[in-house]
């Protein structure tokens, strides 16, 4: 692609572009965790021998393997989580992962030489959580500031948010999802329907 990658997309892509088995890492090594994720992501992106389907599969397994998808999906539903019944919750959580993968998979073939530099970590003010700060550099473009919010729970690391130039993926999703539900008179099913439409449309 001749145009520059969009910063937001590039960052989300790097977070989400995925693959195969997560390498083992020492507990608490949040920097190493993000670094290995980024390296794997970049190698999948740059691997021209992969088909679109392979990339999407890799993308999904990377996302599911490195992100706390349950926590993310629950947070994105906001206060409506409590109103949702068991069936709605499980249907919503299934669609949530599909929605993320479907949203970004279409752009997996447009890698244009981005690189990532892991900087330092910063306290989040919450127990067991840190921000891993990084910069994504694009050839000929301005660098993008990306913070990865990593949680260490029972010695297992997982990403629970990605903050691109001060914009949190989790907050954006929650705001958007809440708006859909609020505008449908508080019906969680309205969100589930919209997510299903998006996922179906991408297949």
């Amino acid at each position: 692609m001749t145009h520059r990658f969009s910063p937001l997309f590039a960052a989300l892509l790097l977070t989400v572009v995925a693959f195969t088995p997560a390498p083992s890492h020492a507990a608490g090594d949040a920097k190493g965790f993000v670094k290995s994720l980024a390296d794997q992501a970049l190698s999948v992106l740059a691997d021209n021998s992969l088909s679109n389907g392979d990339r999407e599969k890799a993308f999904r397994s990377l996302f599911v393997g490195h992100f706390d998808v349950r926590a993310l999906s629950r947070f994105a539903l906001g206060r409506y989580w409590r109103r949702a019944n068991k069936n709605q919750r499980s249907e919503y959580q299934r669609l949530f992962a599909d929605f993320i993968v479907a949203s970004y998979a279409a752009r997996l073939n447009e890698y244009s030489g981005e690189t990532i530099t892991i900087k330092s970590t910063r306290e989040t003010g919450r127990k067991g959580e840190v921000f891993v700060q990084s910069m994504i550099d694009r050839p000929g473009g301005q660098s993008i500031r990306v913070d990865w919010r990593v949680r260490d729970k029972n010695d297992k690391l997982a990403i629970i948010d990605v903050v691109v130039e001060g914009v949190s993926m989790a907050i954006t999703q929650r705001d958007e999802f809440s708006s859909v539900i609020a505008n449908a008179g508080g019906q969680v099913d309205s969100l589930i329907d919209r997510l299903r439409e998006k996922v179906d449309a991408s297949q």
């Binding site: 949203s103 907050i171 958007e176 999802f177 859909v180 919209r194 998006k198």
Partner: peptide, 24 residues
């Protein structure tokens, strides 16, 4: 491309822009 992408991947474009605007 950025805006096209956000519009394509959002389920409520208005709410997505509102949230992005505020955070930025």
């Amino acid at each position: 491309e950025t805006l096209d992408e956000i519009e394509r991947t959002s389920i409520d474009f208005y709410a997505a822009i509102r949230s992005l605007y505020r955070q930025q």
